[in-house]
Design a protein around this nucleic acid. Structure first.
Lengths: 355, 355
DNA sequence: GCACCTTCTGTTCACGTAAACATTCTTGGC
DNA sequence: GCCAAGAATGTTTACGTGAACAGAAGGTGC
């Protein structure tokens, strides 16, 4: 009775089961628990022989440090929260991938929350969810319409946002939306198109508006007519729907779509209506998704360096975690170069093409 | 001097800064800390007036429960680890999205790790990384070549895998790869093609092999010649490269690609060589990515219900967490229906087509 | 009026870890 | 051989929380 096995005492009283503790290892190795802790964290030197003894005991018991206890003691979780919309979109996933990679390199893991819509309420709900999770920092990809005030961010939590609209409120990293859009529109004008039409993203999207504004301004400064923009929602379906109406119009020779998916839908509709790309209509996209080069015709587009954006976001968090640096006003801009492929060409003299 | 402000004692000795604690709230509200805990967890009833007083104090201090302490006490983190490859791929991101959504519904967050390659070493490294994070369960998407033994999974950790090869080792959920592939090949045979060629995924991929095997068997049982498969790697680039060689061959009239991206690359190459789809060559993909319907021509493909797979994976974890259910042998199969679009048609009599 | 039950609140304690401080052991100079 | 100096290890303590138990307040039946 009294010769009860030591290990069996677990789960006896009011606590949930858990593995062997640092104390169990210490007992087996014949050292103090502090020495086990030193081996486990590598914080202070331990004599080689002692270390071996401790490591043996760890292996024997299958010991793994209790992370809750460690986090409690150290005051951090080595984990970053990440809020994104629509993980499926190429831009999101690439950025996420880069964030994960960069975070991991720093020894951090990433807790991902995907919000349906970029609305303020959804995002702040996600913030609530995450700040009730164990995180040391928060990255928000495409904050869009959310206002900083509405987010109710814990004031001490390091934050990084991939949206330039938050400049001055939170450190931000973003692609040069305006520069890329200007290059796209200018490219079409340089080819000789009288004007350029635009398929915009949803009106509540920051990047969509930046692209639309840049498109409008580039046309204006060139002294061209600014047609009304078509309202899309990022989806290929929207591009297809809009494309079906564009296909009936003779006056549209060049279209700048706010992303590649809509450009693909547009091209689909044009093909279907027997209009040729780029002979009848030139098309430029935005993002340079992997498939852009393999659409027919291969798509001229503006490349976003999602990978770098993701890395930069993590760096911004790390700098806040490390040096208690004040980064509120920080704003990093990543270039967005135009990639010319075969979906753009000089306009042909207007004619009804056969076939 | 002695009238020091209470709140300032934080960070005095050896502990990192942190917010107000449950005790601070209790003091301000004039109750015991246990009552604060009751309000915070809602575990036991508290008189309305008292609750209000506590909530007021919480608001006033900006109190948020310390999650490390809570996790330590309760023995769980309300967090699930998720290991994926190539978040960019449509299938991955859709599954991830569904996992996140389902987990959140259960009050869990998701820690995501992205491994470069599905190799055993990479995956087990990711497992190491994650099991040093605070997680209560682990989902592995596409375990591929990793052998269960090599993964060194903590034996008590609930696991779910989206790969049927782990049946018997870990609970698994997967699409009906074989059924979908059979339907694709049979569809082409039914249209009258003498045989069907195959662009395979990487040979170290489980699903790729399942699809290739099903293709081979369907041809054999129909008494057709089984040509050598082309070796791809899931990328559109590979499809394009292989397509360029296929375009020179007159005997290839039907191709079943192991995923939509490779199908897109293939179609690109065929277009470029002046071969028509589906008139000269019929093409079927796999996955039904969002763009599949907007390729030119719209792609016939096998749809994978990634969303359901993600949900099911979480359910498997929850069942293990809840009932201590033994699910080792569990294997859920999700149907993969064929979606017929315009990239497939009956073969035309062989001729050199103009244009 | 009193025992009894119910409902709410308070007290004590342990979770597993690592920082701070204390002690022991080694080593080398003289 | 002795002492100082440094390295290695041990002891004590607190992190913030919630479970278990204990006690107080209020209501009910007879």
């Amino acid at each position: 009775m009294s010769s009860e096995v030591k290990g069996a005492r677990r789960g006896a009283k009011g606590h949930p089961k858990s593995g062997p503790s640092i104390g169990d290892v210490a007992r087996l190795a014949g050292v103090s628990s502090q020495t086990v802790s030193r081996v486990s964290t590598g914080s202070e030197p331990v004599r080689a022989e002692t270390r071996e003894r401790v490591l043996d005991a760890m292996r024997q018991l299958g010991y793994a440090p209790n992370l809750a206890a460690r986090a409690l003691r150290q005051g951090n979780f080595r984990s970053i929260g990440l809020i994104a919309h629509q993980v499926i979109r190429t831009g999101e996933s690439k950025t996420i991938e880069a964030v994960i990679e960069a975070a991991r390199r720093e020894g951090y893991s990433v807790s991902l929350v995907d919000v349906e819509t970029p609305s303020s309420s959804d995002v702040s709900e996600a913030v609530q969810h995450l700040s009730h999770q164990a995180i040391d920092g928060l990255i928000i990809i495409r904050a869009e319409t959310a206002t900083p005030a509405a987010l109710a961010l814990p004031p001490t939590l390091p934050v990084a946002v991939s949206d330039s609209r938050f400049v001055g409120q939170h450190p931000a990293v973003g692609a040069d939306q305006a520069g890329g859009s200007r290059a796209a529109v200018q490219h079409l004008l340089d080819l000789g198109h009288p004007t350029v039409h635009h398929i915009a993203g949803p009106s509540d999207s920051g990047p969509a508006n930046l692209r639309a504004t840049a498109w409008r301004q580039t046309l204006s400064s060139a002294g061209r007519e600014v047609p009304e923009a078509f309202a899309g929602d990022w989806s290929a379906d929207a591009g297809y729907r809009i494309g079906s109406s564009i296909a009936r119009r003779d006056d549209v020779t060049a279209v700048f779509a706010a992303n590649d998916e809509m450009a693909a839908g547009l091209i689909h509709a044009l093909h279907e209506a027997g209009r040729r790309v780029p002979d009848d209509v030139s098309v430029v996209g935005f993002d340079d998704i992997d498939l852009a080069a393999h659409l027919w015709p291969p798509l001229t587009t503006v490349r976003q360096e999602f990978h770098q954006i993701g890395h930069d976001l993590v760096e911004v968090i790390m700098r806040q975690l490390g040096g208690r640096e004040q980064l509120t006003g920080y704003h990093g801009t990543v270039p967005a170069p135009l990639i010319v492929r075969q979906s753009t060409a000089a306009p042909r003299p207007r004619r009804r093409t056969r076939r």
